[in-house]
């Protein structure tokens, strides 16, 4: 009986690791081909490179204008992360603490954004009216608008677990609302802030649709657009395309590996609450 159980477990372990190869092999293929010569990479095979061509990365960074694209992506991601998390934490705090008909309505108003898809053309119109079309700032605000519903939902759930007594004590000690929020609430919110920041950063970094519609000057392109254009130009040099792919995913990969605990807890927050 015991042996049978152990056998079953062993079989399952093997099956799982075999299944994980389906995920890993395409990624390994990209990794291997990024350091091959153009002729070697033409077949995108899993063979080891004859010699390592690390200069592929140099070419990608130079000819793909990756430094520019990276800094654009960092600017877009970090600015929208700050706006989104500041706005969502403050907003959700008030919404969660003052549960009146009005605040419940506002909460519902945000939740609509979790479900509804963006409609690009009226959004472009709005950006034109605000003189933000085709600007980095416009994309920053648009990213924030798109990420706010999820963050409001995330923070709203967290704030309801923070005891109100702490607010009361702070007020009795003479804190004003701002002070109370930043000195008492924000330190308590650290885990949920980490979750929000990491998930938003990855969303903003990976987005392709918004820049595709809203940015048409190549000096403003974020990494996704830069890789797409690079692919268009170097479609026959898979070694370079593979190197570009790697360059573009390194930042999100780092964020994921360092913060996976927070990312996964945020992603499953909705599921546990049901």
């Amino acid at each position: 009986m015991r042996n049978r159980k152990r056998m079953e477990l062993a079989i399952r372990t093997v099956v799982m690791w075999l299944l994980s190869l389906i995920i890993l092999i395409p990624l390994l293929m990209v990794l291997l081909n990024a350091v091959k010569s153009q002729a070697e990479a033409a077949t995108m095979s899993l063979s080891l490179p004859e010699e390592f061509h690390f200069e592929n990365f140099k070419r990608v960074i130079k000819e793909g204008k990756m430094i520019r694209a990276m800094s654009n992506s960092f600017f877009l991601a970090i600015s929208s992360v700050v706006i989104t998390n500041l706005g969502a934490s403050m907003g959700a705090f008030v919404l969660s603490r003052r549960r009146t008909k009005g605040t419940k309505g506002i909460y519902f108003f945000f939740l609509i954004g979790l479900l509804a898809p963006i409609n690009y053309i009226p959004t472009i119109r709005m950006l034109q009216v605000l003189h933000l079309m085709n600007t980095m700032l416009g994309v920053v605000f648009l990213f924030s608008a798109l990420m706010l519903p999820f963050d409001v939902f995330l923070y709203y759930g967290f704030v309801s677990t923070v005891p109100v007594e702490l607010d009361e004590a702070a007020i009795i000690d003479g804190c004003k609302s701002f002070q109370m929020f930043f000195k008492i609430e924000v330190p308590l919110m650290k885990p949920v802030i980490t979750t929000g920041v990491l998930i938003n950063f990855m969303n903003a970094w990976n987005d392709f649709n918004i820049p595709l519609y809203m940015l048409n000057r190549s000096e403003n392109y974020p990494v996704t657009m830069a890789v797409y254009n690079f692919y268009g130009t170097y479609v026959s040099s898979w070694n370079l395309v593979a190197a570009a792919i790697i360059v573009s995913i390194i930042p999100v990969l780092c964020v994921y590996l360092m913060g996976q605990k927070y990312i996964i807890s945020g992603m499953s927050a909705g599921a546990v609450k049901g």
């Binding site: 706006i83 500041l86 706005g87 969502a88 403050m90 907003g91 705090f93 008030v94 919404l95 603490r97 003052r98 506002i106 108003f109 945000f110 609509i112 954004g113 963006i118 409609n119 009226p122 959004t123 119109r125 709005m126 950006l127 605000l130 605000f141 648009l142 924030s144 608008a145 798109l146 706010l148 519903p149 409001v152 607010d167 007020i171 609302s177 109370m180 929020f181």
Partner: peptide, 21 residues
């Protein structure tokens, strides 16, 4: 204690760039 002006930033950004469009 929980002033409504805390809501200005998220409501304006989301309202103007997502809801209204």
């Amino acid at each position: 204690v929980y002033p409504l002006y805390f809501l200005i930033l998220p409501v304006v950004v989301y309202g103007l760039l997502f809801f209204l469009p």
